[in-house]
Design a binder for these strands. Structure first.
Lengths: 254, 254
DNA sequence: CGCCCTTCTCAGCCCGCTCATAGAAAGTTC
DNA sequence: GAACTTTCTATGAGCGGGCTGAGAAGGGCG
């Protein structure tokens, strides 16, 4: 499996979304363990963009020492590592009494057997290739459920105007009315809502909402924007606006 | 300031489920006694995920000292231990005047009369291999019956919309009508109800509802969902919904 | 010991989702 | 207003996830 040539992240300078924080106000600390540079680069960029403090480790041994020293709030751990298996890293950490929640990365086909039992301890997994929005959402979910946050931005519920989205139930409502979305539509809307009142470009959307190995054209974004409009804005004052030549913006009707 | 006519989506904010607590609000204290690391690992993870405070002991001697020092609300005790027999651990504890309820773990074939007599003393047993839902349900039952909880989440009765489930009588009703379920169907429904209004993945279901040694495919879940739908949703507004690519959710019909 | 209920696998079908294409529509520049 | 660019959306193809019927295997209970 090869990864997209150069993950050129189209980021705006500085985010201003409500950010997850630790109880003492300091940034979330994350460790990313993977032997593919392109992937760790991509992830560290994305997580730092979330305002988190990130450390990297290329293999299981380094992972163990980095985790012991850095004491992260969350760990992103590839199952397939050059030295010790990611599942063994989990076991050694737990044997030490370390309870840090872990998000496993795994290839799509190797899922069923080896991942068994992972979700009971509050850990989770994501199959490669994934979208950054999905990964970050899962991480925030894990942190939320680990109960280590006080912050109200750690809510599974997002509201923009009369538009509501719940990440636990996957429910979306406009003015109280339940709206049925597909997985991709849901992720796109979540991204727009998390960036409400800010223009996001099609490239940014593609980088965040679609998998990093997506090979198609950016016109899918237009198509999905169109789907969303039909479902979200239908017959109502529009919340999704086109900024021609720049991108899209979602904002409450004033 | 506008008022939303819509019912708030707010689910049980942070915690995964309403959690059992001691009268003073502190977490349930449990001791797990077993000499197999993989099993104690699994159990401690699962119980900690329930929000409980867990201590481990690998044999009978350690069990006695840990119990005396930690004063747990509940003990999970394997019958087969390297040193002293689990039943003797029971006797010694009771000789000390310790009345902590005990859940015994036993191999399926070794269920003799001695163990059958346990339930009269207020204790209980579960045969290996078991599902975590069953084990935790039994533990909650023991705690409930030991009368040490005040909490209303310690009820044996679960209601979601017009769907009712009673863990003591194993009765399930939809709109008052009694519905007959098999053991697996019952456990799956209990899991869905305990996680009502939240999407759970097939993997999560498999990890919780099926035995830890289940080696099959996650497509069994689809089949049991289909069975449940036939019995629960038959001819009625559906409560079980598929979230394609994510999992299943049970919620009241609005 | 034999029957029946339950559990689980397999395989085929169906349907929803994703995405490309292309022409229409809207906006921009001169 | 004409020419060009950008965005919108209808249509449909391909694919993959999910549903379900049929049946084998297993276990409980008489």
């Amino acid at each position: 499996m090869s990864i997209h040539p150069a993950p050129s992240l189209h980021t705006t300078a500085n985010a201003s979304q409500p950010r997850l924080r630790r109880p003492d106000g300091s940034p979330i600390r994350a460790v990313v363990v993977d032997d593919e540079d392109s992937l760790t680069d991509l992830l560290s960029m994305a997580l730092r963009y979330e305002g988190w403090d990130v450390r990297l480790a290329p293999d299981g041994q380094k992972a163990l020492s980095v985790v012991r020293e850095f004491r992260p709030d969350i760990i992103v751990l590839d199952i397939m590592l050059p030295d010790i298996d990611g599942l063994q890293v989990l076991q050694r950490l737990r044997a030490d009494g370390n309870q840090t929640p872990i998000l496993f990365l795994t290839a799509k086909d190797s899922v069923d057997d080896r991942i068994a039992g992972l979700t009971v301890g509050g850990d989770d997994y994501v199959t490669k290739p994934f979208s950054l929005e999905e990964l970050v959402a899962r991480l925030r979910g894990l942190i939320r459920r680990s109960g280590m946050t006080v912050d109200d931005s750690a809510d599974s519920h997002i509201e923009v105007g009369d538009l509501e989205l719940d990440e636990d139930s996957y429910e979306v409502r406009r003015d109280g009315e339940l709206i049925d979305l597909t997985a991709t539509e849901f992720e796109l809307l979540r991204y727009l809502m998390r960036n409400a009142r800010r223009v996001v470009s099609k490239m940014q959307i593609l980088d965040r909402v679609w998998s990093y190995d997506f090979g198609g054209k950016s016109s899918v974004v237009e198509i999905y924007i169109s789907y969303l409009r039909k479902k979200i804005d239908a017959g109502r004052p529009p919340m999704i606006h086109t900024v021609r030549g720049v991108g899209y913006i979602l904002k409450p009707t004033r």
